[in-house]
């Protein structure tokens, strides 16, 4: 079978096609990660991809690296152990909105705070897909889920605001529609020596879309195009940003990375 070089180099072809539903945005985001790894020319033997549980977290099984599909919410905690114990590895974390922001919220905060060199990509589909469409921390208020049959009364979580406030040194958001842009943002995340948080807005036509009358996959992809605006444009022309979701690079700062700080402690004793 013919496959592209990106697929040949980064995926376990015998595991494809993946389990995601027709039109699910996760495949687009996973592809973007692979392109970013290829573009950066990382040594694949030194790349570790870690995930938690949920639709997003099935990604590592398809990816031809050292891959770890952990427990629900705990990807960042496992990844922290990996990076801390072996800092020369490139550790990429793939997680979902429920995985990262609900059950794994505490790990997210602290991974940001430590500024440990992990590149985290959240596949945010605004719903718990694997369990059949329950509302998640990123389901918009008043939207529906199987556990919000009368509308979601929760306030929705802005994960980029959270990551920035918690101390992540690189924070960005884009969407499955903006596949080239998110590829570049992931590359920037891989370049950043510190904790990088990239939110990839996905589409879930099967559960979120159907439950909220958002149309099919194509309609939902169009919405990602039409209902988002780059933060640089929004800053110049705020009137264009009304009712739209901001995308782009929100934060990029340089701070000493966590394992590098620990190395300095080890160095104290090597000199002894």
């Amino acid at each position: 079978m013919k496959v592209s070089n990106v697929v040949k180099d980064n995926f376990r072809e015998d595991k494809l096609p993946h389990i995601w539903c027709p039109g699910c945005g996760h495949g687009i985001l996973m592809h973007a990660i692979a392109r970013a790894v290829s573009n950066k020319g990382l040594d694949r033997d030194k790349v570790v991809v870690v995930s938690g549980i949920g639709c997003s977290s099935r990604a590592p099984g398809y990816m031809n690296f050292n891959t770890l599909h952990t427990t629900h919410g705990r990807a960042l905690a496992f990844a922290t152990g990996i990076k801390m114990s072996q800092p020369d590895l490139h550790v990429i974390v793939i997680t979902g909105d429920g995985d990262a922001a609900a059950i794994g919220g505490n790990h997210l905060i602290h991974a940001c705070r430590r500024n440990i060199d992990l590149t985290t990509i959240v596949f945010n589909n605004n719903i718990y897909g694997m369990t059949g469409g329950q509302y998640s921390p990123t389901t918009p208020t008043n939207d529906y889920g199987t556990t919000a049959p009368y509308g979601n009364i929760d306030k929705t979580f802005d994960l980029c605001d959270l990551a920035k406030a918690a101390g992540a040194t690189y924070v960005a958001r884009s969407t499955a529609y903006h596949a080239r842009i998110i590829e570049k943002l992931i590359e920037n995340g891989l370049d950043n020596k510190g904790f990088s948080f990239i939110e990839g807005i996905s589409v879930c036509p099967t559960y979120y879309g159907r439950k909220n009358k958002k149309g099919n996959a194509v309609d939902m992809m169009k919405s990602l195009k039409e209902d988002t605006i780059d933060i640089r444009i929004a800053k110049k022309k705020p009137e264009l940003a009304e009712g739209k979701m901001l995308i782009g690079e929100f934060h990029n700062s340089e701070e000493e990375e966590y394992t590098a700080r620990y190395d300095k402690i080890i160095d104290l004793f090597e000199k002894e």
């Binding site: 013919k2 070089n5 993946h18 592809h31 973007a32 499955a176 529609y177 992809m221």
Partner: peptide
């Protein structure tokens, strides 16, 4: 088409 296909089912030929 290649970068937006969620299923890697279409691509523009590389060095095949």
């Amino acid at each position: 088409c290649e970068i937006l296909c969620p299923d890697f089912a279409i691509f523009l030929g590389g060095d095949e």
